[in-house]
Design a protein around this nucleic acid. Sequence first.
DNA 1: AATAATGTATCAATGTATTAATACAATTAT
DNA 2: ATAATTGTATTAATACATTGATACATTATT
Lengths: 139, 139
Amino acid sequence: MVTGWFHLNHRSGIPLYLQLKEQIKTAVAGGVLKPGDRLPPVRELALKLTVNPNTIVRAYSELERDGLLSSEQGRGTFVRAAEPLLGVEERKIQVQGLIDKVLVEAFNLRLTTEELKKLWEERLQAWEVRLREGKGADR
Amino acid sequence: MVTGWFHLNHRSGIPLYLQLKEQIKTAVAGGVLKPGDRLPPVRELALKLTVNPNTIVRAYSELERDGLLSSEQGRGTFVRAAEPLLGVEERKIQVQGLIDKVLVEAFNLRLTTEELKKLWEERLQAWEVRLREGKGADR
DNA sequence: AATAATGTATCAATGTATTAATACAATTAT
DNA sequence: ATAATTGTATTAATACATTGATACATTATT
């Protein structure tokens, strides 16, 4: 069960629902969770992670708002298979903003353009490999 | 004076000191503010932006903690010229984390690798141009 | 039809973040 | 020396975020 993938640090200072959101997003982006896959029921996951069910609800519903998940009362919560909520342009703008943040941070940390390009290539390739491996296996 | 570069939105929901931090960081990364340049005194900038002086203080001192600025009592606050506080490896790890965030977001927004690469190239070039132009001009 | 499983909604308690008011300390300018 | 300029420190008011307790609504199972 996918439950095992999640674990929360109660003393990190980072809100529990944010930790969970991040882990779900990473799992979906990396193909660990695929469109149509079901997530654990809120109570079950709450027990497993020893948090209040509302904390799970918050993570799930914010991800639903963002178009990543889809919850149906009485049935469960699933990874959304449908199209993204935003148009291509809007999505690109969102990613551009994140890229700019990387650039600002990198330059202020005095990384050279070369170092930065290398880091980018490395991480991009790491994810491409991860995605390629994820395809097909249902785990 | 560099004061004119900053402007705060009091109704955006984003904390004022964070808005200011972001603008200072962007100005330094883009070469608008150069090492050794002086920032406006806290009271002056507070008046200009119509916020409490403590709000400016908070932005300045957090950026000092991060190694970007340097404040000296009675003298003023300046863009730090010295070496970064962290070692190269630590700085790279920090940037890697941001890059991974970009990748997670991009994949979840269903951008293709091609679209993503193109966006990266575009933004990187935009900043390189900005930096090249910034060199020499004191503005 | 009844029960169990699941997501939803409402409200309260608590902690944390943000901004402000005010006084203090060091440096620079006169 | 004195005053002005500048950053620093302390404390408080307020709003917001986070988590929890509890009851409700819908769907699936028996």
